[in-house]
Amino acid sequence: MKATMQQEQEFKKLQRKHLPSRPVLRNALLAFLVGGAISAVGEGVRQFFLARGIGPEAAAGPTAAVMIFLGALLTGLGVYDEIGRVGGMGAFLPITGFANSIVAPAMDFKREGWILGMGAKMFTIAGPVVVYGLLTSFAVGLVYYILYIPR
């Protein structure tokens, strides 16, 4: 049977009484601590490049690359999912989490082959991030072009 709208609403009310509540505050605090810690590590890497005379603009690239390396390594070692379990978005939002979202499916789908397994599946989550990131930045750039570039 498919419930009517009214039955669904009544059921949602009943369901809400029994569902475990999400530990919103605890999760937020852990996200802050884990996300902050990963950012601080990133700052350490950035300072390393700054100290070698690379400018702040140019340091962002290599910093991201090192953080991606760390994220990929920790995922391979089977540690990153544990960090994510504790830190939630604190672990997933930093670029190390982006690396995790690439390595996790790539490892998992290696068994389905190099092309349609590993090669295709490694972008199940990173792919949309790049797609929508590029589309949005294109739109932003277009607006900038229309408003600010004199013709």
């Binding site: 475990p20 530990p23 089977g78 990153y80 999912d81 544990e82 379990r85 390595v103 996790a104």
Partner: peptide, 11 residues
């Protein structure tokens, strides 16, 4: 995928 570092909700 298995090693994905996301948080499982309490449900």
């Amino acid at each position: 995928p298995i090693e994905m570092g996301y948080q499982r909700p309490p449900t």
